[in-house]
Simulated scan of single mutants.
Amino acid sequence: MTKRDRIKRTATILFAANGIRNTKIEDIANVLGMAKGGFYYYFKSKEELLLEIMDNSVISRKEFLKEVGDLDVPFEEKLKMIVRRRLTLKDDRYNLFLFAKIYENGEINLTYDEYMKRDIIFSEFLNNNREHIKEEYRSEIEKIRTMLSSSLTTLLLYLITQTGIEVVDEDSYKRMVEKYATIDITREIEMFYNLFLKSMLN
């Protein structure tokens, strides 16, 4: 892992654990054992760092949805794959943890607002598969996207709570992820699909 990537990982977990506003550049530098000036060698500000973290997430999601869209499998299976990705919390998926905590804490700032405005990837995916959605819902794609995103984030936060581990740093994040891995995600996917997705499909 490069130093730049190490900074992003550490910052992401600290942002999620302690809040973006409460996390100072000094906090990130201290955890990494580097001088504050070392941080500025890689990033001009906390806002630039946060923007890169979010941009990386957009790129990753876009690539994933393109791969899913190209698969020769039923549409409902594609939706389940998307749900699985949104509920799969691994050590290297700390961005997902950050976005869930931002949602939970209501910690919205201009950087995150801008990210959400550009978060049209899933809407595009649904629009590209309109023939699989019941006609009465086709004019409500953006509303559906918002409802599904909120519901999945709420479920993810609930499952994180079920681990019983409060994340305050990278070590506790790792412990939480290890405990999270014991959850039956397949069961959660089926439940979510049956409750929120099945009724809107042809």
Rank of each mutant, 00 (worst) to 15 (best):
N22S: 14
F43Y: 14
E67D: 07
I13N: 11
N128F: 04
N56Q: 11
M147D: 13
I183T: 12
L148Y: 11
R61P: 04
K117D: 12
L157E: 02
A17F: 06
Q162F: 03
E142A: 10
A100V: 14
F97Y: 15
G37W: 04
A17E: 10
S139K: 15
Y173E: 07
E190T: 06
E136Y: 09
R145A: 10
E107W: 03
E131M: 08
R86F: 11
K174N: 06
D92F: 04
Y180T: 14
K179C: 10
T111M: 12
A100E: 08
K36Q: 10
I82Q: 02
E63G: 05
M191F: 05
E114H: 13
R145Y: 13
F15C: 13
I189V: 15
S123H: 02
K66Q: 12
I59C: 08
R86N: 15
D72A: 04
I133Y: 09
R6W: 00
I185H: 12
K80L: 02
G106K: 01
D92G: 01
N30H: 03
L197C: 08
M81I: 01
N129G: 11
R145P: 02
V73Y: 01
E124G: 03
N194W: 04
R118N: 14
E48I: 09
A29G: 05
I120Y: 07
A100N: 12
T186G: 07
A100G: 14
I7G: 03
R145T: 14
G19I: 06
L49M: 08
M200S: 09
A11M: 12
E142Y: 08
E135H: 08
S150G: 00
I120G: 02
D92Q: 02
E48W: 08
E131K: 12
F99D: 04
A181V: 07
K66T: 09
S60V: 15
D184K: 13
T154G: 03
E47A: 12
D184W: 15
K46F: 04
I160D: 03
S123M: 05
L14A: 09
V73M: 03
T186D: 15
R187Q: 14
E124D: 02
N128E: 10
M54F: 14
Y40K: 02
V73N: 01
N127G: 04
A29V: 06
P74W: 08
R93N: 10
E26Y: 07
Y94L: 12
D5R: 01
Y173N: 08
L71H: 00
N109M: 08
D72L: 02
Y103T: 00
I189W: 14
D119G: 03
E170N: 06
L155H: 07
Y193D: 02
M176N: 07
E114P: 04
S172G: 02
E140V: 06
E114N: 13
D70W: 00
M1N: 02
F43C: 01
S172R: 01
D119I: 06
T12R: 14
L152I: 13
E142K: 12
L89N: 10
T88K: 10
K62F: 11
L89R: 11
A100T: 13
Y115W: 06
K66D: 09
M81S: 00
Y103V: 00
E131Y: 07
P74K: 09
K90S: 11
G69R: 00
R85G: 14
L110S: 15
K90I: 09
R187Y: 10
D119T: 05
D119N: 15
I144H: 05
L110T: 11
F39V: 01
I144V: 14
N128R: 05
L201H: 09
L14H: 12
